[in-house]
Simulated assay, not measured.
Amino acid sequence: MEFIEQNPPQVNHTALEEFILLGFSNVPNLQGFLFGVFLIMYVIILMGNSLIIVITKVDPSLLRNFSSLEICYVSVTVPKLLTDLCRQNRKISFLACATQMYFFLVLGVTECFILTVMAYDRYVAICNPLLYPLIMNSRVCIQLAAGCWTSGIPVHIGFTYLIFSLPFCGSNQLNHFFCDVPPVLTLACGDTFMIETLIYVIAIVVVTIPFMLIFGSYVKIITTILKLPSDTGRAKAFSTCSSHLMVVALFFGSGIITYLRPKSSHSTGTDKFLSLFYTIVTPMFNPMIYCLRNKDVMLALRKFLLKWM
Rank of each mutant, 00 (worst) to 15 (best):
F252Y: 13
I256F: 07
H266A: 03
V181G: 10
P9D: 05
A237N: 13
Q143A: 15
L85I: 10
I225E: 03
N172L: 01
Y200T: 12
E17H: 11
Y102Q: 03
N12S: 15
L16A: 14
V297P: 07
V248Q: 03
L260D: 09
G48I: 07
S275V: 04
M194R: 05
L21H: 10
G216K: 08
L46E: 13
L22V: 08
T208S: 13
M101V: 04
N294D: 15
S93C: 12
N26F: 02
Y278H: 14
P183L: 08
N12I: 15
T232F: 04
S25H: 08
A237R: 11
L130P: 00
F211E: 04
M101D: 06
C179P: 05
Q143G: 09
E17S: 08
P183K: 04
Q100P: 08
F193Q: 09
I53T: 06
K303T: 12
H244Y: 13
N286A: 11
F215R: 03
D271P: 00
Y102P: 06
D121R: 13
N29L: 12
D271W: 01
R139P: 00
F66S: 06
V181S: 07
I126T: 12
R302W: 10
L144P: 00
C241T: 12
P167I: 11
V124Q: 05
Q173S: 04
L166C: 12
D59P: 00
C291G: 14
M284I: 07
I214F: 05
F33D: 04
I114H: 07
I289Y: 08
V76H: 11
C148L: 10
R261Q: 13
Y132G: 00
R87D: 01
I45T: 14
T282D: 05
A98V: 06
L21D: 10
P60Y: 09
